[in-house]
Simulated assay, not measured.
Amino acid sequence: MDGVGYFIYSFIKLFVIVSPITGVITFITLTDGLSRSEKNLIAKKSVTLAFVIALFFLFTGTIILDILGISLDSLKVAGGILLLMVAFDMTHAKISKQNITDKEIDAAYKREDIWIFPIAMPILTGPGTITTAIVLTETAEVVQQKFLIILALILTYSIAMVTFLFSRRIHKKMGYNGMLVLTRLFGLFLGAISVSMVASGIWGIYLSLNSL
């Protein structure tokens, strides 16, 4: 796979899993009643923190796996199953309980640091995003590919930033039903990615067992 192809491959995976457009409804709900400047500040802080968290695991994922004694294939299976559960909820246009529960959203109304939880994490950077960042880095064959993953991550969260800053306008243009349709579509793509991840992990575990 050439450089452009690998960048597109990495970006699509990250963008579908981060899925900033599906977090718009939650963002609008949590920031209801705030001024425009306050909403923009929360958007900038939350997206920046989410990017930093994802970047942290992208660089330290290998070390963490080694410390915990977790194989990449095991992570693929576990992460893939988790993503499949998230995708199932998305195809039904629901907020995934694997990322955040209704009780946690209700509790967030009373918090002043909603830009940290639940917006930055787990809405923008959840277990699925962390798993994908680690898997992409671990499977990158050359340094150039790792650099392309970082660029894909930057582009993903840049789009997330724009999406959140203009969340009200996007919601007004698309409407609630339009947002739900897009959420279901992203859920379908995410389901396909998760199945591929689980299959790859199971195959890798099978090969490693046969080599013993």
Rank of each mutant, 00 (worst) to 15 (best):
V47L: 10
F147R: 13
E112R: 15
F164R: 07
L75A: 01
L34S: 06
V86H: 12
I150R: 10
F117I: 06
T31E: 08
E38K: 05
A133W: 01
L148W: 12
K44R: 15
P118C: 11
A43M: 04
I150S: 05
G61A: 07
F88S: 12
I116N: 10
T31Y: 03
L49I: 13
L34K: 15
K94I: 00
I116L: 13
L153P: 01
G79T: 08
I81Y: 08
K44L: 11
L55C: 00
Q144H: 10
A108L: 01
T129I: 03
I53M: 06
G80R: 10
D106M: 07
A152M: 05
S46A: 15
I123T: 02
A93C: 01
P127S: 13
I70E: 10
L72I: 14
A140L: 02
L151T: 08
K110T: 02
N40G: 03
T137R: 08
D102N: 11
G80N: 05
S46I: 03
R111M: 07
G33M: 09
F59C: 14
S71C: 02
L58W: 11
V52Y: 05
I95P: 00
D89A: 14
K97E: 05
E138P: 00
T137E: 07
I100Q: 02
T139P: 03
E104K: 13
I64F: 12
D32H: 15
A133H: 03
I150H: 09
E138H: 08
T131F: 10
T132M: 13
P127Q: 10
T62R: 15
A87E: 08
I114P: 00
V143D: 08
V135K: 02
P118S: 14
I42L: 04
L49N: 03
R36K: 14
N99Y: 15
A133T: 07
I114A: 04
T132E: 06
S71F: 00
R111C: 04
G61K: 11
N99R: 15
I114M: 04
A108S: 10
L136I: 06
M85R: 13
K76W: 05
W115N: 12
D89E: 09
E112Y: 09
K97T: 02
